[in-house]
Design a protein around this nucleic acid. Structure first.
Length: 257
DNA sequence: ATGGTAGCGCTGCTA
């Protein structure tokens, strides 16, 4: 079973690239972020023609997350269910069960800067994710929480760690939130198979950063122990960042037995 | 070198 996360930075612009990628890589479950679509504009029929069911949680202009599956799409639920009784103001998380695995497609807030309200929102958002997991799932379940976390887990995941101290994506507080999730029972599947630095999933459009290999690894697949045990291969498809009108993110793939 | 690119949508915000 192949599970993929990909921040497409506008599905309207990227639709042809996404369908071509699906035909090349045949994911079982493809989780998208930053569709930037309203729910009415999401082309379920295009994915259906390729043999996939799809669910979308969007708001238009910004954000928007989707799950596209050819191994079932059950118990679909947008947003948080963490007992707080107040919806996320943004469309940033969508849950579904696919092929027996409880999956979430997440677009974690960027944070902007450490003194910005958006950074407070980011830390709170990660607490809500943890509370939702604790409320509705168990670490003993088959879980795969994926998406654009906007956090580089450690300094191997940043091209210039010395130049990025006290910035969003690398600050200790947000890395601690990721560590809390790991302590609860979902871990970074990519790091099971790769120790080296410089394996990024996002590169800024500016300054030719992709070609200079200046990026960050911020797109993650977090799996429970059972999913981690089944994962035999993980990789980033850097080729998807090349050519005409790429997203600034590349797809990250986990293959499960 | 305090810029640069991309997307949304129409002016400046977001990333």
């Amino acid at each position: 079973m192949r599970i993929v996360t990909w921040n497409v930075n506008s599905l309207a612009v990227r639709m042809e690239r996404v369908t071509e990628w699906i035909e090349l890589f045949s994911p079982d479950v493809l989780c998208l972020q930053e569709t930037k679509l309203g729910n009415d504009a999401f082309a379920h029929d295009v994915f259906e023609e390729l043999g996939y069911e799809s669910a979308h949680h969007g708001q238009g202009q910004w954000n928007g997350v989707a799950i596209i599956s050819k191994v079932g799409l059950d118990d679909v639920r947008p947003d948080f269910d963490d007992g707080r009784g107040e919806p996320d103001p943004d469309a940033r998380i969508l849950w579904a069960t696919c092929g027996g695995v409880r999956i979430a497609s997440c677009y974690v807030p960027n944070g902007r800067s450490l003194d910005d309200d958006h950074y407070t929102y980011k830390l709170d958002w990660l607490d809500r994710l943890a509370a939702d997991l604790d409320t509705n799932t168990s670490p003993a379940d088959d879980l795969c929480i994926v998406g654009d976390f906007n956090i580089a887990p450690d300094d191997r995941d940043v091209y210039d760690p010395a130049g990025m101290i006290d910035m969003t994506h690398t600050s200790q507080a947000e890395r601690d939130k990721l560590a809390n999730l790991a302590d609860w029972g979902i871990t970074d599947l990519f790091r099971q198979h790769h120790d080296e630095a410089g394996l990024y999933s996002w590169w800024d459009y500016r300054n030719g950063d992709f070609h200079k290999r200046r990026g960050m690894r911020i797109d993650l697949l977090l799996g429970s122990a059972s999913v981690a045990d089944r994962t035999h291969r993980t990789f980033v498809d850097r080729n998807a960042r090349k050519g005409k009108q790429p997203s600034d993110h590349a797809p990250v793939v986990a293959d499960l037995r």
